[in-house]
Nucleic acid binder design. Structure first.
Lengths: 220, 220
DNA sequence: TGTACATCAGTGAACGCGCGTTCACTGATGTAC
DNA sequence: TGTACATCAGTGAACGCGCGTTCACTGATGTAC
């Protein structure tokens, strides 16, 4: 009764991989490459399922073509893997926002461009977006100090709004940070509801985002 | 090898229940009562965990104090149980909205009262709200015909906005249904982000909801 | 130059868990004759 | 009035699954002497 002989484990891990061609182990000193492969695989799986919560260690390992336990060489547990995926997402999102507004001088247009870039990012990578802004993001990334990426994004948004006010293209007298919170949360609702209720006849996202921005910030 | 003798099943289901006192079976002809007990238990569990996705058949059964398989007497699978829970939630939410605006004649105030009631409901029962408006709601409830409860809620919201326009207390020229979508989705974002990022220093929800409503709808 | 040894990049079997679902069953209560 | 039978409200053992995590290990490659 103590030692039950069960042989139902997956045998021949590399037998029929499908997605990944039979992997070669990394050369000596290059072990860290696997870390990137893991994050890439997690991104892929998120893109396919659109669901951050069902991303599992075993799925990631299978996608990469390694034993499930090899993940522990680079991440202490699955929560930290997810956190690393989210962190990469935040970096990318920041880049996308900057790229979108780089060549725009009019502050109102820049604000709109940034928010639209944000929305595009979310709709292009729903699983990642859900991980980044959903309930299961562990620890430091979401809140934490002023350093946390989502906090910085919010402050950048507030600055973008403030620039509109200073340029006289937005209603004065409202706290830019408060407006940023309202706007961010609104757009978050647009995105999540759109992802969660795909059957609903949603109006185009740019229009919704633009109208909400104009009304909430009071663009003129 | 074929028949492994495992005895790890939970024995003595009613042994130490904790929450529910040892249940008596319903009298003959009253079998449907269990259905309500199941829904109540699911509501309780949702209230405790706040997470619609991890609500499981076995948890519900345990809470009620019955064998897990007894659920199949009333629901063909776990998805339909969840759907029934959500449906009850929609009925309650509709009642809450109506109760909040019943005695208010000013259409703008009525609009605000309804939306605040919506927000209160969500924050009071996060798990249920997530189930109702989250990604895992099956089939007919979420979209479907004009009969679907969330669709009806949206149309009621549009009517409430239209009444404001007709009374001259809201900006004219905007499609009420479009404004309802914007407003609904915005408030959804306020709620979800607040639930998902409890550490963030959110401003009071009534203020956010009120300000968003005034700006988006153009209340005067 | 040859060899013992350390390091590195992983492997693979096993664990216990909770899950949804199946199947044959049980035991009390009502009903027909 | 007594009894056989149908119905009803459940039970309980078992299944196969995927999960995160543990543990001892393997085999290639570089390095010290």
């Amino acid at each position: 009764m103590d030692h039950v002989e069960n042989m139902d484990e997956d045998i021949g891990t590399n037998a029929s991989q499908g997605s990944a061609t039979a992997r070669r182990r990394n050369p000596r000193g290059q072990g860290d490459r696997l870390r990137e492969e893991l994050l890439d695989a997690a991104d892929e799986l998120l893109a396919e399922s659109g669901d951050a919560q069902q991303l599992s260690l075993r799925q990631v390992a299978k996608r990469v073509g390694i034993a499930a336990t090899s993940i522990y060489l680079h991440f202490p547990d699955i929560a930290e893997l997810k956190e690393a995926v989210a962190l990469r997402g935040f970096v990318e999102l920041e880049r996308a926002r900057h790229a979108a507004s780089r060549d725009i001088t009019d502050p109102a247009e820049a604000l709109l461009a940034r928010i639209c870039a944000f929305a595009q990012f979310a709709l292009a990578y729903p699983g990642r977006y859900r991980l980044m802004f959903g309930p299961y993001l562990p620890t430091a990334l979401a809140y934490g100090a002023a350093q946390s990426p989502s906090r910085r994004a919010l402050e950048e948004l507030a600055q973008s709004i403030q620039r509109c006010q200073e340029a006289g293209v937005a209603r004065l007298g409202a706290d830019p940070l408060r407006l940023a919170i309202l706007l961010w949360a609104s757009v978050h609702g647009f995105l999540l509801l759109r992802l969660d209720r795909p059957q609903f006849p949603w109006p185009p996202i740019e229009g919704m985002v633009t109208e909400a921005t104009q009304r909430l910030v009071g663009l003129m």
